[in-house]
Design a protein around this nucleic acid. Sequence first.
DNA 1: TAGATTGTTAATCGATTAACAATC
DNA 2: TAGATTGTTAATCGATTAACAATC
Lengths: 212, 212
Amino acid sequence: MAKDSISNSVIRRLPRYYRFLGELENNGYVRISSRELSERMGLTASQIRQDFNCFGEFGQQGYGYNVSDLRSEIGKILGLDVQTPMILLGAGNLGTAIASHIEFENKGFDLIGVFDKNPEIIGKEVGSLKVKNLTELEDFCKENKPVAAILCIPMGAAEKMVDLLIKNGIKAFWNYTHYDIKENHNDIVVENVHLGDSLTTLSYRLNSLDSE
Amino acid sequence: MAKDSISNSVIRRLPRYYRFLGELENNGYVRISSRELSERMGLTASQIRQDFNCFGEFGQQGYGYNVSDLRSEIGKILGLDVQTPMILLGAGNLGTAIASHIEFENKGFDLIGVFDKNPEIIGKEVGSLKVKNLTELEDFCKENKPVAAILCIPMGAAEKMVDLLIKNGIKAFWNYTHYDIKENHNDIVVENVHLGDSLTTLSYRLNSLDSE
DNA sequence: TAGATTGTTAATCGATTAACAATC
DNA sequence: TAGATTGTTAATCGATTAACAATC
């Protein structure tokens, strides 16, 4: 029976399930048991069954799961069957790399606009999009109704930008800045990417290795 | 009393403590209590004290913590007082952005080499470094002894690359590919960055918002 | 049918929170 | 000293693992 509130730990595993099932499907697998999947992914079979059962019953006793069906179910759960229009704020090194490196279509989004305020960057091509002047942002939002935004701007500019974006209908933030988007704004979701913190934990673990 | 084995949850919070304490220090704070820090960071005071006590006693009853001392203690715990030589494999969009966007010195690393196999990329300037041909990798390692590596290469090339790097003395991987670095290699640490998975969870949460 | 494997409940484990004596 | 706040133990909460009846 499906649960109503899903824990963060489960949510974080879903994209990985989706990826692994995609690979299995590409390799011609038709069925898979929780046990075999658990061995491939380095999890326990129990955990996998518990995770799936948060959302419904996708398997069959004695058989396992149909790879293709399960994948498409998880895709639907993740909202990958809909593409949410998304914009990028800040087309510096990082913003540009994100825009061209990520396959937005597979991830439930459609990148429809890129903005910067640096005159040297405005007009540049990023993927198939031309970087627009930030002054055009509000008009663009009225016309194209983006719902999600990537923040690749300096931390100092983040607070005002978030307020502006929320006022213009943005509900989802993929946040590469260290600015803490207050979730007291209602009906807003935020995913923070702290690349620096990620590298810092690597430093910690490397140093713990040495001192063992 | 300091613990010997630190949980992953604690480790992931350390860089954030370090950042917040840095900001406090910059703003002239001399002391801070676990209670005030907890309010700023959105944690509980209990958790903060528990976290710090994994590593020792850094506070003073009735007073709190000295901001600057605490920050430098956490910096030492994270290994930020040492700079580990690091190389980057793959100087495409993403690799280039990482190399120029991240402040390696603050994170315990020193980026000393960038490699690619694409002739159009070799020779290009990335930050203050010139992209080298991948064929020079082994000689470079013998001479400069890098210990950490960033993987920004295609997934298909990852397995062989990891083996080669381990053979040449690399012990820490900052892995942007989806290749699962088997941690059966001993004395190896890995930090995975799955940007696509991160975006996918945003899609999930955005869609859950709508259906509430 | 017999064997396999799920869905689900119960047991365990670990992380977070609460409480408070120690002490600055 | 009195007040504040730590370090640390105990209680709670949540997530993972184990077990097994249901069933394909």
